[in-house]
């Protein structure tokens, strides 16, 4: 019986053919050169298509290169070969409709919430009045009204990451890249922010790529989960998550949820067994 559920719920996603996907990577390859060493292939020939407004989670063993993949998509790092296309147009470097939410929040300690959220708009050269207006809107959206004039050290970890999310949303990106955004938070805050993220995402839909360590988080949030293999990473499994939205906490104990969780868990465990100890990162 569990096989039936697995077949129904874990069907591979069908390739999208009709129009160019929102984001497409073609044979993306990245090596790290280590002094004298032959170097290290982080991933090779990684080809991924992400549809417009799709919420895609990327999960994989530690050090498999999922963060590097995201950094390359953001333009912070360069691939050694392969291309990235957005709406069918090739891109390189940062900008162009992508914004990143960082794992360590990485707010500027010398800026208030308002100034941190307005940072991206400031880099775009928007007028002060315009960027503060937009920043206030997103501060309200992430539920931080009243903390606009606080400095990061006066905020809790969860609040800091709300600022990080608002900062990324404020530049109105088409694609939101999230690099283990809740990884540094305690479990309760994490659960809370997952629901908040879904609420925000439903009120302001975007294409999301969400790197995470947490299987539950991936299933709960995403439309689709890409499971990376250990380094050199390739796509081990591409899973469509069948649950309707809005989703709620009860979902996490449903049989279907647990079945997907078990499948991913087995994939990751198998990967660790085969790949041996991996460097963190």
């Amino acid at each position: 019986m569990s096989d039936v559920i697995a077949q129904r719920t874990l069907a591979r996603s069908a390739p999208i053919v009709a129009m160019p996907p929102k984001l497409r990577t073609i044979n993306l390859t990245r090596h790290f050169v280590r002094g004298g060493d032959a170097g290290l292939t982080v991933f090779q020939d990684l080809s991924v298509d992400v549809a417009n407004l799709e919420f895609v989670a990327i999960i994989g063993p530690s050090g498999c290169g999922k963060s590097t993949f995201l950094r390359i998509l953001n333009g912070l790092d360069q691939a050694d070969s392969g291309t990235i296309e957005i709406d069918g147009r090739r891109v390189s470097g940062p900008g162009a409709g992508r914004a990143m939410v960082f794992q360590g929040f990485d707010l500027f300690p010398w800026r208030t919430t308002l100034e941190n959220v307005a940072f991206g708009l400031e880099m775009q050269g928007r007028s002060k009045r315009e960027r503060l207006d937009i920043a206030r809107h997103y501060i309200e959206l992430v539920g931080l009204t009243g903390f606009a004039q606080s400095y990061p050290h006066q905020l809790s970890g969860g609040m800091q990451q709300r600022v990080g999310i608002a900062r990324a949303l404020a530049v109105r990106p088409d694609i939101l890249l999230m690099d283990e955004p809740f990884g540094a938070l305690d479990l309760q805050t994490r659960d809370l922010l997952q629901d908040e993220l879904l609420r925000i995402w439903q009120s302001d839909p975007k294409t999301v790529l969400f790197v995470t360590h947490s299987i539950e988080e991936a299933i709960y949030l995403a439309d689709r989960i890409i499971v990376f293999s250990p380094r050199p990473a390739r796509i081990q499994r591409d899973i469509r998550v069948p649950f309707l939205r809005p989703r709620s906490e009860e979902l996490k104990t449903s049989a279907e949820f647990l079945a997907i969780r078990r499948e991913i868990w087995c994939l990751l465990k198998h990967g660790v067994d085969v790949g041996g100890p991996q460097a963190a990162g």
Partner: peptide, 16 residues
């Protein structure tokens, strides 16, 4: 480095 990364991620020029 992470602060400079945030800058680059949001398209900050060298001068900015």
């Amino acid at each position: 480095r992470r602060w400079l990364d945030v800058g680059r991620s949001f398209g900050a020029s060298r001068i900015r």
